[in-house]
Each structure stands twice: as C-alpha cells, then as structure tokens.
Design a protein around this nucleic acid. Structure first.
Lengths: 144, 144
DNA sequence: CATTACTATTACGTTAACGTCAACTATGAC
DNA sequence: GTCATAGTTGACGTTAACGTAATAGTAATG
C-alpha cells in the first residue's frame, strides 16, 4: 500500500524488540496468539501483532497460561460488541488475582518459616565456631 | 526385635499419614530420598523414613527441587561429622530464600499492576452500566 | 477354593512452553 | 555461480514430579 515499512516488521526485528526467540513467535502463531501476514513465505508482524505480543508478555507476568491469554485476546478483539465479553475478561482477571494473592500469602509464610530455620541454623553454626559468610549482595542480571 | 509394629509402617499407612500416594513414595525411593526396608517384597517405612518424608514435604513448600532436597537430606544424615556440610546446607537454604524473596517481590508488583488494570476495567464496565458481581468469598480448603 | 485387598514391577503418558536440529528455500552481494 | 544471511517447516527433545495402566504375586478372609 505505502512505503512505511515500519508498519510491519520481520521476525528478527520482533525478537530484538521484545526479547523473544523466533521459535517463540512461531509457536505463538501456531497457538493462534499472533497472526502475522505473509510476504511469500516470510512472516510480517503488524502493529496489531505487536500490541498482542505486549499483552501476551504482560499476561505471562501475571501467570496466565498461554491458552488463557489466547481467550483473553479474543475477547479483547471482539471488544465492544458484546458487553458480556468484557465482564468475562474482568472475571477471569479477578480469579487470577485471587490465585496470585494466595500464592503470595503462601510464599510469605514459607519465607518466614525458612527464615526461622536459618536463624536456628545460625545458632548451631555459631555454637560450633563456624563463621557465616554473608552473601556479598549477589548481582542481578548475571549472564551465566 | 520387639512387637512394636508401630516402629515401621506399610505404604498405605504412610499414605494416610502424610497424604501422599503410593506412587509418590515409590518414586521418592527410586530417587533415593527414602530407604524403606523390605519384608519380602513389601516396603516397610521406618521412623527415619517418616522423618525424612516430613522434611521432604517441608522442602517442597519452600520450593526446593527433589534433587536439592536429596542433597540436603544427605547432608543432614552425615550430620555433625563434617562441619562444612552444615554450612553448605545453610548456604543452600540462604540462596533459596533469596529466590523466594525475589519471587515474592515480583508477585507483589504483578498483583499491584493487575489490580490497577482491574480498577480501570471497573470504570469501563461501570460507565456502560454493567454490574460487577463481587465474588462471594471463595472458600479455602475446599475438598473438591 | 475363590474372592478381596494390598502390594510390586515395568513402562509409557502427561503438561507447558518452548529448544534443538535437519533439510530446504529465497535473496542479495560479490 | 556461489557464499552468506535470514527465513521456513517438521519433528523430536527437554524438564519435573508424578499419573496411569497392565500384569502379577501374596495374604487373609469367607
């Protein structure tokens, strides 16, 4: 239609933009999460695909399964047409939120329990004159 | 030795005591997490096995992998003999704790983000006159 | 003796989300 | 032509922690 090639991007550009692998994008397409158009054989990802991918990655952060995300994206697409769809999306998100809150609570108590065990261990070690090396603030983003 | 059959218990008794399946116990044995003695073919779980199983289940709560738990149990068994082993256990637990804290933080922000999305959704739904059914406080501990 | 209740071993199935590899195709540079 | 680069499809591999048969043995009970 026009020359704005930034309207679509290749698989590699997508990978660089969103830090995913080609395999991931093809996988998402096979799962009907993305619908890149084809230029011959090649995939070209549109603005819509980019928007969807953003939502997919967000969804993963929230712990939704890909299948769940697919459903949510479909509801999104239908959009305003059916009110009930929006409510359904809301409901799914609410359920997910409750699960996450539960997980957080479990994690909180588990952390507490483990901390107590560690304190107990410190006493034992200390009573035997073993020194505890305090971890030197492990660096995040360590490339192996 | 004596008549106290409560010293050891059968696989079924173990299952009832710790709410696991026979498959799980056999699996743990195959992974060298448990070492039941044999009466002919049958497995008999000793006090030691019960203690280990308790620790295994605790470890799972903390998110340790079974392989990790196996190593920890081995260190436990060796016990006082080698000081370094205790320190190693302590170290592993500390690492695990840090991972858990990270997870909790991620979960906390994810929850926050999702809550914001939900509030946004509520406004949209509200502006369209769609009523939101507040979940009737889902019951925890629901035995299916 | 037959049935029922447990148990054992072996081995393949499950789930999610990709990774890895092989074999091919298409395109542009030189 | 041919080398390099990027892309494609297809299919099998991976990981964890068991689940699920299928088959067989053993023991107590009626």
């Amino acid at each position: 239609m026009n020359k704005m090639t930034t309207e679509v991007c290749t698989i590699k550009e997508m990978c660089d933009l969103y830090r995913v692998t080609p395999r991931t994008l093809r996988f998402y397409e096979s799962k009907e999460l993305l619908f890149p158009i084809r230029e011959g054989q090649r995939r070209l990802f549109t603005r819509r695909d980019r928007a969807r991918l953003k939502l997919i990655l967000q969804g993963k952060r929230f712990g939704f399964s890909l299948e769940n995300i697919r459903q949510l994206l479909n509801l999104y697409d239908i959009g305003d047409q059916q009110k009930t769809q929006l409510a359904k999306t809301y409901e799914l998100a609410t359920e997910r939120l409750m699960v996450m809150v539960d997980q957080k609570n479990e994690l909180t108590t588990a952390i507490q329990d483990l901390k107590e065990m560690l304190q107990w261990g410190e006493k034992i070690l200390d009573s035997r004159g073993i020194k505890i090396e305090k971890q030197p603030k492990k660096r995040a983003g360590n490339n192996h």
